Amino acid sequence: MQAFVKTLTGKTITLEVEPSDTIENVKAKIQDKEGIPPDQQRLIFAGKQLEDGRTLSDYNIQKESTLHLVLR
C-alpha cells in the first residue's frame, strides 16, 4: 500500500509499505529515499510519536495515510 510522509519543509515522500511493517522498517525506507539516518527520524501520526517496535497496523495506519517526519 502507499503511505505518505510529510517533512517539515513541506516535501511529501511516497512510500510503499505494508500494514505489518514496523516503524523501524518505515524509517529504513525513508533513509533509502532521503538519506536521513533512522536515529534522527521521529514519525508522528494522529499527534502520537510512533515507536520503532510497533507496526503500522498497531497504529491503525491505512493506505494513503500521511505520517509527519520530524528530525531530532
Rank of each mutant, 00 (worst) to 15 (best):
Y59P: 00
Q40A: 09
I44R: 05
I44F: 15
E18Q: 13
Q2F: 13
R42K: 13
R54H: 13
Q41I: 12
D52P: 06
E24F: 14
T9D: 14
Q2T: 15
L69Q: 02
L15S: 00
A3K: 01
P38D: 04
V70I: 14
K29S: 04
G10M: 04
T7C: 09
D58G: 04
D58H: 11
G53H: 15
V17C: 05
R42V: 15
I13Y: 06
T9H: 12
T55L: 09
D39W: 14
L71R: 07
K11H: 11
P37F: 06
T22C: 03
Q40M: 12
Y59H: 03
D32M: 13
R42P: 01
T66H: 12
A46F: 09
N25A: 14
L67C: 01
I23A: 02
Q40K: 11
R42E: 14
L50I: 04
P19L: 11
D58R: 02
E24Y: 15
D21R: 01
I30L: 07
T66G: 04
M1E: 03
Q31D: 05
L50C: 03
E18D: 12
N25C: 09
D39E: 13
D32P: 02
H68C: 10
I13M: 05
P37M: 08
I44Q: 07
F45V: 04
V70R: 10
K63N: 15
T9Q: 12
E51R: 09
Q31A: 13
H68G: 04
D58I: 03
D52W: 03
E51Y: 08
I61R: 02
I23H: 01
R42Y: 14
S57E: 12
T14H: 08
T66A: 06
E51V: 08
P19Q: 06
R72L: 15
E51F: 07
I23R: 00
N25F: 11
L56R: 00
D52T: 05
T55Q: 08
E34H: 09
E16P: 04
T66W: 09
K29I: 06
R54Q: 09
Q31K: 09
K48H: 12
H68T: 13
K48C: 08
V26Y: 00
E34Q: 07
D32E: 14
Y59V: 03
T66L: 11
M1K: 03
D58A: 06
K27G: 01
D21G: 03
H68Y: 14
G47H: 05
D52S: 06
D32I: 13
D58C: 03
I44V: 10
E34M: 15
D21L: 05
Q2K: 14
E51W: 06
T22K: 08
G35T: 03
T12A: 04
K27W: 03
A28N: 11
G53F: 11
I36F: 12
L15N: 00
P19M: 10
P37I: 05
I36P: 04
L67Q: 01
Y59Q: 03
E24W: 15
V5E: 01
Q41D: 01
N25D: 11
T7H: 06
G10R: 03
N60G: 14
R42W: 12
P37N: 08
R54V: 06
D32C: 08
A28F: 12
T9R: 10
A28S: 11
I36K: 02
S20H: 12
P37A: 09
S65C: 08
K6H: 12
L67E: 01
H68Q: 10
I30Y: 02
A46I: 06
Q40E: 12
G47Y: 05
F45S: 03
K48P: 01
F4C: 05
F4T: 07
L71D: 07
I36V: 09
N25I: 15
T9L: 10
K27C: 01
K11W: 09
L56W: 04
Q49S: 10
I23Y: 01
Q49H: 12
I30S: 00
G53I: 07
L69E: 00
